[in-house]
């Protein structure tokens, strides 16, 4: 049994991520707070998504990728030799940039993840609870057997969130979850995130500064090293500090729009 009493939800130690010989992300040390929303911001191509995907080992699918340093979940290094990436992804869910529901019914979209993970309880209840949790229940309760592809983009994305919380992870990773959506749908996702953080730790990558300022409690600012083109976290603090009194000059330039 692992200890669940670490003060942090997840932390990285000297984390570097490589694609072949290219070091995409260099030397990141982050302590992510429990049940808070942490935003990762920075200019495009600085390795935000790469860093995010390292948390649930989605980078494993890039054949040349490898990692040095550690990502600790309750003191366990997720990149340890004995760690099963599949188990990691059960504990750390993910919502992708573009809504990617399975081409199945709304119900099946949620039930499938639970079923393969050996869920034993009442599936109907789980589906309802997850859809309510993603603030989608009222809109779809009468058409659970319909294809998820019939939903709007914003609804699809909330379905993907419902799908993620159905397997009851501790942490939900969100990779620019609203970038493909209209402003109204974006707003609903942002409201939803505030509800979700009561139960989950959320890490969100966003290129939208206002969004980061609106939704997150903590913000990590990433930037490229000028000579090596590797990304790293240059500043990590409470969101209001980052946006009002950043310590780093580059952060200030970026958040005020003078850089980028």
């Amino acid at each position: 049994m692992q200890t669940e009493n670490s003060p942090y939800a997840i932390e990285t130690r000297n984390l570097s991520i490589f694609y072949g010989s290219f070091e995409a992300v260099k030397d990141v040390n982050l302590q992510i707070q429990k049940q808070k929303i942490t935003a990762i911001i920075g200019p495009s191509g600085c390795g935000k998504s790469t860093l995010l995907r390292a948390f649930n080992r989605m980078n494993d699918f890039v054949p040349t990728s490898r990692v040095s340093g550690e990502i600790l979940l309750h003191g366990t290094n997720l990149y340890g030799k004995e760690i099963d990436p599949v188990e990691v992804r059960r504990r750390i869910g993910m919502v992708f940039q573009k809504p990617n529901p399975f081409p199945k019914s709304i119900y099946e979209n949620i039930a499938w993840g639970a079923r393969i993970n050996g869920f034993k309880g009442n599936m109907d209840d789980l589906v309802e609870q997850s859809l309510r949790g993603a603030a989608l229940w009222d809109e779809v309760k009468d058409k659970l057997k319909q294809s998820a592809y019939a939903l709007s983009g914003g609804q699809q994305q909330r379905l993907c969130i419902a799908r993620a919380i159905a397997i009851q992870p501790e942490i939900i990773l969100m990779d620019e979850p609203a970038s493909a959506l209209d402003p109204i749908s974006t707003l609903r996702i942002e409201e939803l995130m505030q509800e979700l953080k009561k139960n989950y730790t959320i890490i969100i990558v966003t290129h939208n500064m206002q969004q980061a300022a609106r939704v997150s409690d903590y913000t990590a600012m990433m930037m490229l090293y000028e000579n090596t083109r590797s990304g790293t976290v240059i500043e990590y603090d409470e969101t209001k500090t980052i946006f009002t009194r950043p310590k780093d000059k580059r952060t200030e330039e970026y958040v005020t729009g003078r850089f980028g």
């Binding site: 992804r89 573009k98 990617n100 399975f102 993970n117």
Partner: peptide, 23 residues
């Protein structure tokens, strides 16, 4: 079959074969 479907499956903790067989 687009990659996003496989990623979605892996994202909810599916193994390789589960994602192939179901999606």
């Amino acid at each position: 079959v687009p990659d996003s479907i496989r990623q979605a499956a892996f994202g909810v903790g599916a193994t390789r074969w589960q994602s192939i067989w179901s999606h």
